[in-house]
Design a protein around this nucleic acid. Sequence first.
DNA 1: CCTTGTTAGTTACAAATCCAACTATTACAA
DNA 2: TTGTAATAGTTGGATTTGTAACTAACAAGG
Lengths: 149, 149
Amino acid sequence: MQSTEFELEKFIPYLLNQAAETSSLAFEKVYKGRYGMLRTEWRVLFHLGLYGRMTASEIGTRAKMHKTKISRAVHRLTERRMVTRARDTDDRRMEHLTLTAKGRAAYEDLSGIAARYEVSLLNGLSRDEVAVLRTALVKLAESKPISFT
Amino acid sequence: MQSTEFELEKFIPYLLNQAAETSSLAFEKVYKGRYGMLRTEWRVLFHLGLYGRMTASEIGTRAKMHKTKISRAVHRLTERRMVTRARDTDDRRMEHLTLTAKGRAAYEDLSGIAARYEVSLLNGLSRDEVAVLRTALVKLAESKPISFT
DNA sequence: CCTTGTTAGTTACAAATCCAACTATTACAA
DNA sequence: TTGTAATAGTTGGATTTGTAACTAACAAGG
């Protein structure tokens, strides 16, 4: 019945979205259920947990998140006493963000669960397949916008 | 400095999100720019274009979209004269959705661009890598929620 | 010093999404 | 029948996100 050869079920951006959504939703239940966090918040938390002290812009560059998202996530995380802010003494536009003990505890908890979740997620895939998947995803994430014909 | 072995840069759900977001944003420019559509709308359009007449629930099941999203997307698509609705005569709760000529034209246009975009997206990957990627994404999309320890 | 431009981060308003309640219709069992 | 439950789809209000304008601080040339 259809006139084109296009197949949605094999269309990579579509598959990416489906896969990303299922895995995100699964993990969202954890940080939302345990700490009432939003996706933006756990991203900020994970970055601070992994890389230590960072500014909001640094997180933005690394996580490819818009600065307003970060601003609001940081606001909520400081309210919950998981993050502290400290003005830079040289350049007083910047703030250095750090996890509090409470924030670090949450990070340790969640990163542990994340690691275990990933194992279960990759259960049906071979070591080689996982390796291919990772490098492919990295390349796709870095791909450039559409150029037309 | 960090205490866990967790690596965000290799964490599959994170990579999936990054890749999905880049490719979605790239393609969003197309359907938004050309037809002023939202993501939910092009999904509905694509399903109707591919599978012909469908009800809202059928689209919901296939696309894993919530019914409210579909309801609103269909509303906007009918406003733009891209979709028509027809009550089922036997079960008058259901509506059968079909593309109009205008809707089909938009679908043909966009699916062509999508196909070409996918080619460019997969440029840096070998045939085998693409195959692995596809099957892996399908499996991940079907994966089940987290089970705790 | 001043002006102009840039960068860090916040805020306000509009747009989109989520969730829960709602209507209308059908199914089915007492 | 009739009462209860299930299903298709819509609507309303709270939550979240996106976009653009904003403040504050610095930079650099004149």
